[in-house]
Simulated assay, not measured.
Amino acid sequence: MKRRNLILGGTALVALGACGGESKFKRYNGPQVTYVIANKGDRRMFLLHRDQVLKAYDFKLGFAPVGHKQYEGDGKTPEGLYLIDRRNPNSKFHLSLGISYPNQADRAMAASMNKKPGGDIFIHGQKKPGEKNRHDWTWGCLSVSNKDIEEIYAMVGDGTPIALNP
């Protein structure tokens, strides 16, 4: 009986191992990311621990990349200081981290134009894996490769400040 259980258990382990692929959920055991800086002009994002750069990434922006987001549908990416405030493991863009846009000032600006401020601004991956997005294409989000968002998702916690600079 023991031999039979051993054979069945070993077969089950081999079968389960074959079913696995690489998970999109990575582990990170390094220094805490205490700040994110995204410079829109040079499309470069930095993950920092205090004043030390841990990692840097290239990204794409909204299809109207110059200037601060003013209202829903303008295709611009916000500028200013926000927080990473949520995460979506089931994003249609692989994985995503939410940015706390709009803040009170953003809502007031949009209201002064009789517009909605919009929302759902994220750092996210790509809709189609391996696709080479050569141009800015989002509606205001920051898009990185799927490999990069897996690292960023693991490294950056909710509540981390993010500076979106011109």
Rank of each mutant, 00 (worst) to 15 (best):
Leu48Asn: 06
Gly10Leu: 15
Pro78Met: 06
Thr77His: 04
Asp58Gln: 01
Ala15Ser: 11
Val53Glu: 13
Ala56Cys: 04
Gly125Phe: 07
Gly67Tyr: 01
Lys26Tyr: 10
Ile99Gly: 04
His94Gln: 08
Asn39Ile: 02
Ile84Cys: 07
Lys115Thr: 04
Glu131Trp: 10
Trp139Ser: 12
Ala111Glu: 14
Pro89Lys: 07
Gly10Trp: 05
Gln32Met: 07
Arg107Thr: 08
Leu47His: 06
Tyr82Pro: 11
Lys128Cys: 00
Leu95Thr: 06
Ala105Arg: 14
His94Thr: 13
Pro78Val: 03
Val36Arg: 05
Ser23Phe: 09
Arg44Met: 12
Met1Gly: 13
Val36Gln: 09
Tyr71Phe: 15
Gly125Ala: 10
Leu61Ala: 01
Asp158Cys: 03
Ser100Phe: 02
Ile121Gly: 04
Asn114Asp: 15
Gly119Ser: 13
Asp51Leu: 08
Lys147Leu: 01
Glu150Phe: 10
Ala12Arg: 09
Ile99Val: 15
Lys128Glu: 14
Gly159Arg: 07
Tyr35Leu: 15
Ser112Phe: 12
Leu83Gly: 02
Asn29Thr: 13
Gly9Cys: 10
Gly98Tyr: 02
Asn103Ala: 05
Lys127Cys: 00
His94Tyr: 15
Leu16Pro: 03
Ala56Pro: 00
Pro129Ala: 12
Asn39Ala: 05
Gly119Cys: 11
Leu48Met: 15
Ser91Val: 01
Met1Pro: 07
Pro166Gln: 06
Asn88Ile: 08
Asn29Tyr: 11
Gln126Trp: 00
